[in-house]
């Protein structure tokens, strides 16, 4: 029987094309469009080439935001990953308390970003917030709205409170999947607790930990709502991370061109980092054969 050629079948793909076009391609292209044009209002645009990209790349304000962003992501990864693993190791393996722990751990993850921000914004205040009240009661001049270090502390602690659970739950899942025989064999081999962690638990958790690092990196790199609610990016621009700066530029100053160029590069950075992670992860899988 001859194969039937019917190009009308292509029309069946049309809904997907339309959907993707409207949800992703057209908005992205609009941004690209803004990024290469300039306007003085009245919807009149003229060609500006790569000018905005050059401006953004050499803009010390953007450099500062990028630096703060990398520092923030670095700090929270350095805290959340080890802390998450430590919590996972301490959680009971089974029984009633295991379920209680899981529910407790999941709670912060269920709270919306802006609510988390509000909670910590109030908690950190010296007049009505428990944390601020206690700290000033201890004689510390606590003021996260004026002191940049305090602002950083509260933003970092908030993020750790909100997201360490995710790392802990992923690590816990990784730990649960280790067969009992490994621990028994380690006992027979007289391995110390540290060696059990180093040679059994850590290697077995490697996959989930990479996913945890990737998720936490991307999320923290795009963080907006929580610091915006707590510090509004201040004091000064001390906690203005990339997305806060971007929104200021795009909506506060309505600099559409630079903001568009900025967001495209922002997007590319995240894409690049995700690609690096993906490559590392698949390479690790391949190494199994070496």
């Amino acid at each position: 029987m001859d194969k039937v050629q019917n190009n009308k079948a292509w029309f069946l793909v049309l809904p997907v094309l339309v959907l993707v076009a409207f949800s992703a391609v057209i908005p992205l292209m609009t941004v690209v469009n803004y990024a290469v044009q300039d306007t003085f209002g009245n919807n009149v645009f003229f060609w500006h080439g790569l000018g905005w990209f050059e401006d953004v790349l050499t803009d010390s304000r953007v450099h500062g935001a990028l630096g703060r962003q990398l520092m923030f992501s670095g700090i929270i990864l350095a805290i959340q990953i080890p802390l998450g693993i430590a919590i996972a190791l301490c959680m009971p393996k089974r029984g009633f308390w295991a379920s209680v722990c899981l529910v407790l751990m999941a709670l912060p993850l269920l709270i919306p970003w802006n609510v988390v921000g509000t909670i910590w914004q109030i908690l950190g205040r010296t007049d009505i917030g428990l944390l601020g009240y206690v700290l000033s009661g201890l004689g510390i001049e606590w003021n996260y709205a004026r002191n940049a270090v305090h602002a950083w502390v509260i933003v970092v602690v908030m993020d750790v409170w909100h997201w360490t659970s995710l790392v802990a739950l992923l690590a816990y899942a990784g730990l649960q999947s280790i067969p009992q025989a490994y621990y028994q064999a380690a006992k027979i081999d007289q391995a110390s607790r540290w060696k059990v962690f180093r040679y059994i638990e850590l290697p077995k958790m490697q996959g989930v930990l990479l996913i945890a690092v990737l998720l936490r990196f991307m999320d923290s790199f795009m963080i907006y709502t929580e610091p915006f609610v707590v510090t509004g990016g201040g004091p000064g621009s001390a906690t203005s991370f990339l997305s806060i700066d971007l929104v200021k530029m795009a909506l506060g100053q309505f600099d559409l061109g630079p903001a568009a160029a900025f967001s495209l590069m922002y997007f590319l950075v995240i894409l690049l980092v995700s690609w690096v992670f993906y490559t590392v992860m698949t390479n690790l899988d391949k190494q199994e054969g070496k």
């Binding site: 067969p179 025989a181 490994y182 028994q184 064999a185 040679y199 059994i200 290697p203 077995k204």
Partner: peptide, 9 residues
């Protein structure tokens, strides 16, 4: 044990 236990790394 019944199933292989090796230290992968």
């Amino acid at each position: 044990f019944q199933f292989p236990v090796v230290y992968d790394t």
